[in-house]
Structure formats: C-alpha cells, structure tokens
Computed example of a mutant assay.
Amino acid sequence: MQQPDLSIILVNYKTPYLIVDCLRSVEKHTSGLTYEAIVVNNDPDPSGRAIVLAEFPTTNWIEMGYNSGFSRANNRGIAESAGRLVLLLNSDTLLVDNILKRCADLLNTRPDVAAVGPMQLTRDGKVHTEAFTGFSQLRRYFFIFPTSGFFKRLLHRLLPDRHYADPDQVDWLVGSFIMTRRETVEKAGGLDENFFMYAEDVEWCWRLGKQGKLLLLRDGFYVHLEYGSSTDYQASRVTHINRFKPQMHVSNLLWVRKQYGVGAYLILILHYLTLIPVIFGWKIGINLIRFRNPFTELENQRAFAQQVGIFLRFFWKTLFNQTGFYKV
C-alpha cells in the first residue's frame, strides 16, 4: 500500500456524530493529497465505532479501552499512522476549504517550519481572536490581578511577549489543528502523557518549536465548535476570580512547572494561597460597610478556595515533576 501524504488523527470521547461531520468536511474540501483517517476511541461506549465506520468504513478505529486523555490517545494514533505528515484534528472541527493541502504544501516546501495551523472560526463563522498564541500571554492570564493599570503594566514588564520577524510565527498552535512532519515528531517526541487534557499542546509546541518555526496562517481558517467532549471538565460558574476550569488549570500548572521550573510554579501557588484570605476579607468588608451579614454572598470566594484545593492535590507531584496521570 502506498504511503499516504497525511495521517489525520481524531480522538473520540462521546463525539461520534461530530467526527462524522468533521470527516464529511475533510472529504468535501480536501483534494491534491492522499490521507488516512485514524480515530482513537477514549469512550467506553462501543456504539461510536459503528456510527463512524458506517459512513467512513476505511477509517482506522483504535480502541484505548479507557478514557486515556488527549496526549496518550494522539500518541497512539501517531504510532499507528503511516503518513509523511501528521495532523492532530479535534472531533469538533469543520473544514471550510482545502486548508489541508495548503498546510501540507507549506511543510513540504519550507524545511524551516516545524508545524503549522490555521485560524479558528467560531460556530457562527466569526474569527476567534481571543485564543492565545504566545507563552507569556498565557502565563499572564494565570495571575488574578486587575486587568488594567499598574498590575497590567507590571505583568507585561515581567512576562513580555516574544516578537518574531515573521508575522505568522507564534510560540504555540492550538491543539485542535496542528500539522507537522513525522520526522519532526520523532525528533521532538510525542505529546507528554502526564497531561490528561489541556496544556499538552502548549508543552508539545515548546518542543516542536525547537525543531523550527511554528506558523499560524492568519488568512487560513477552520471552524472550531469547541467543547465537543469536554463538558465534564468545565467550571460551573465563571467570574474574574473563579475563572479557572479545574482540569485545565491543573494541566496549566504542570506545563509551567515543566517549561519554566520550580520557581515559576511556586510563585503561582503562593499567589493563589495569598488570594484566599484577601478575597474573603474584601467581601466581608464590603458586607460590613453595607450593613449586611458579613458572611453573605461568599459563594464566589468559596468556589475559588475549592479550586485552589484541587490544585494543591497535585502539588507535590507537580513540584517534583513526577510521572503520573494528572487527571482531576
């Protein structure tokens, strides 16, 4: 059998119908290159296999046997793929044009490029402009300070953005669409399997970036519906203080520890621990000034303290960068 140009790897967790829609869009819009589709199944429900293979019978369906998360599933898909190029593609994505051929051509003609991805569109067709593309952007978001004034200037000074001569070059690409070469993966290594979900794409791009440029095609697009299979891992209420999804931030803290070391990790943990009495004291003070029960309306503060408690469950493992499965 002739080697395909591209291996498309999708992970299934309760999203077989989304995968069917995704593969339909791939089939409709892709021409000029050969590809294989690989679905790695994290879902204990076996019904998804029949749904996908009924319409796309040549799909290589791989059973993990448990919810192995994003890194382990994609690594398994990469290991069993045959293409010269590899694409990690979320199940909740749709192609709108022949972007796969364009990305493949770029990797085939630009040896200085390690990986490439297009811009995201929301489900209503708007450009997703809020996605981070720089490591410092992401790290600044982890600090819960006022978003303007002194603290904003301080964080930008301490964690400045990196600027590249190429306007398309970025620190990292969103894991919902990353295309790279097989040989690049062999040099950089696969995704870090300590990560269950989230931030593994950031850490992987850090290593991919050592092999060449990461390019975000600002005039190339795909639809990312978002949260097709991750609703189990979202925060129930989002405010400025209580804005971290527990699973996401456990993974973010692991990434900070791996990439920036013990000091950067400890600063964040100390920041969150210090904030607990501050935000409780602030709200209690506001209640007293307004002649209300001082312990009323503290739900947001309690939720934050509970989140910090979740982070601390992984404290020693993260501090010593221990091998494990960082799943909340």
Rank of each mutant, 00 (worst) to 15 (best):
G149W: 00
K101M: 03
R257C: 11
T239V: 06
V127E: 07
L23V: 13
R157G: 13
P118T: 03
W316G: 00
A79P: 07
V174C: 10
V174L: 12
M197Y: 14
F151Q: 08
D45F: 02
C103V: 07
S148A: 07
A131T: 13
T129Q: 10
L191W: 12
R102E: 00
G77M: 15
K28I: 06
I78T: 13
F150D: 07
T58Y: 01
T296G: 04
T30F: 05
K213H: 05
V116F: 10
F244K: 05
W282M: 02
E183R: 14
G149H: 08
F145G: 00
Y326P: 09
W282H: 10
P146C: 02
T15S: 09
F135S: 10
H128G: 00
A264V: 11
T133H: 13
L216W: 06
M248P: 00
G48D: 07
N287D: 06
K213W: 00
V223Q: 10
M119W: 01
Q247G: 03
P118A: 06
K283F: 00
V39C: 09
A114I: 02
L94H: 14
Y265C: 00
L23Q: 15
N60C: 05
L319N: 03
A115D: 08
F325N: 09
E36R: 11
F195P: 12
L268A: 04
G48C: 03
Q2T: 15
R140P: 06
K101N: 05
H249E: 13
K258T: 05
V127H: 08
E297T: 04
F56E: 01
D171A: 07
R181T: 09
E130L: 12
V202Q: 11
L6I: 07
H128Q: 14
N300A: 02
D124V: 04
S230A: 14
S229W: 12
Y227R: 15
I289A: 11
K210R: 15
F143I: 00
T147H: 08
A82S: 14
I51F: 03
Y35C: 10
R181E: 01
V328Q: 14
D21P: 03
V328L: 14
T180L: 15
I19M: 06
S91V: 05
Y222E: 09
E80F: 03
L253D: 04
N98W: 03
D5K: 11
L173Y: 08
R257Y: 08
W282Y: 06
F151L: 04
G209N: 11
K245C: 01
I144L: 08
S230L: 11
V40P: 10
V185L: 15
A54Y: 01
N12D: 14
M248H: 12
F320I: 02
F195H: 14
H224V: 02
Y164T: 04
F145I: 05
A114Q: 01
P46H: 04
S251W: 01
R72I: 12
S47R: 13
D45N: 11
C103R: 08
N321L: 07
L191M: 13
F291Q: 05
S81T: 10
W255T: 06
E200V: 06
L88D: 00
S229C: 14
I267Q: 10
C205N: 11
W204N: 09
C205L: 03
V238I: 04
N12C: 04
T239I: 01
W316K: 03
